[in-house]
């Protein structure tokens, strides 16, 4: 950098209201309270109103549910990648396991969705975590590649052994009793998970997770088994995916090989990039953009992937921080030019 006169540098400073609402004064005035809860309110109201606004278009109502399923996956991906340090492409596996678990529980044992969904979430997450245990010591891209094998392998195994209905899948699964229940249940799940995880990463245990990502040596030297925490991270992320998968099964009244599809592994990453990694809300925003776009592009057939790639590349090149990171910065800080 040249030190010549007239050089200017952009400086970012926290807004006064942000500083005030960080501290005990947060409850001192309506202004601060509004400042604090407005973003949360926008998200909650936005999601809650979507089914009502789209009630005239049943096709797009279904899209809201799909957005929610992808959002659950994307939140899990973001958590695992940015707080635990595991880049998991196993999204398709989580969904598939959750979907088949719910379908089997429903068709074999006759359990209603209100029981199959939580059971499939829990059982599925246990299955996924146990199967991922051998991969936990892998780092970076190696974990990513191996995790991508899981959904592919699972689909091939079901096909080859002709178990769980083989290529036909499991038919005759009960549906949600009505579309409103389906939508609001999923929306509630997404909201609860976003807020719960955002809280979790701020707790002491969240710092341990971040330690596992940023400096695993120091965590080991502190007497903590990093593989336990990685397993816990995978459990949380796969539970989110299995929950999505179980809901998907009851939405379509069917569990099949397409629930191991690569879309469930790939779209969550794209959504996290677009929405802003590490924010946990960003990925939900990303899904709200990418899933409808991909529905609109359905008519273009395989050109869809090309458009998708261009959108993603553009985002990475021009706004690599993601929408949510950008918005949060604008909301919390102002910029000014200073002379150096």
């Amino acid at each position: 950098m040249s030190g010549s006169k007239g050089d200017r540098r952009k400086e970012r400073i926290d807004r006064g209201i942000k500083v005030r609402s960080d501290s005990v004064y947060a409850i001192s005035s309506w202004k601060e309270i509004t400042y604090l809860i407005a973003p949360r309110l926008v998200l909650i109201l936005g999601l809650a109103l979507a089914p009502l606004l789209l009630s005239a278009a049943p096709y797009w109502q279904r899209v809201v549910s799909i957005i929610c399923v992808y959002s659950l996956l994307a939140i899990g991906f973001d958590f695992l990648a940015n707080y635990v340090g595991l880049v998991s492409l196993g999204g398709g596996f989580y969904v598939g396991v959750g979907a088949y678990a719910a379908a089997l529980l429903n068709t074999y044992f006759g359990l209603p969705p209100i029981i199959t969904i939580p059971m499939a979430t829990l059982l599925g997450a246990i299955i996924c975590t146990v199967l991922f245990l051998p991969c936990l010591p892998l780092r970076g891209v190696y974990f990513a590649i191996v995790s991508l094998m899981y959904p592919l392998l699972a689909a091939r195994i079901i096909e080859a052994l002709d178990i769980f209905g083989g290529t036909d899948g499991i038919l005759g699964v009960d549906g949600f009793s009505n579309v409103w229940l389906e939508q609001y249940f999923l929306i509630l799940c997404v909201l609860v998970m976003v807020f719960a995880l955002r809280r979790l990463v701020e707790e002491d245990i969240g710092l341990v997770f971040r330690g596992v990502k940023d400096n695993d040596q120091a965590v080991k030297a502190s007497g903590i088994n990093i593989n336990e925490f990685k397993a816990l991270g995978v459990f949380i992320a796969s539970a989110l995916g299995c929950l999505g998968g179980a809901c998907l099964t009851h939405m379509y009244m069917w569990a099949g090989l397409s629930q191991f599809a690569l879309d469930f592994s790939i779209i969550p990453i794209a959504a996290t990039v677009v929405g802003g990694g590490g924010t946990l809300v960003g990925p939900v925003l990303g899904c709200m953009i990418l899933v409808p776009v991909s529905e609109l592009l359905r008519d273009f057939g395989s050109l869809r992937i090309a458009v998708y790639s261009i959108v993603l590349t553009a985002f990475i090149v021009f706004k690599s921080e993601g929408i949510m990171t950008y918005a949060a910065r604008k909301y919390e800080q102002f910029e000014r030019w200073v002379e150096i």
């Binding site: 341990v208 502190s222 007497g223």
Partner: peptide, 24 residues
């Protein structure tokens, strides 16, 4: 460690949460 990597973005005391979380 010879090469220290604390959480630079956190206050000093928050850096001790990890060891304090350990079973020991």
């Amino acid at each position: 460690f010879q090469v220290m990597r604390p959480y630079f973005s956190l206050p000093a005391y928050k850096n001790l949460i990890v060891p304090l979380f350990s079973p020991r």
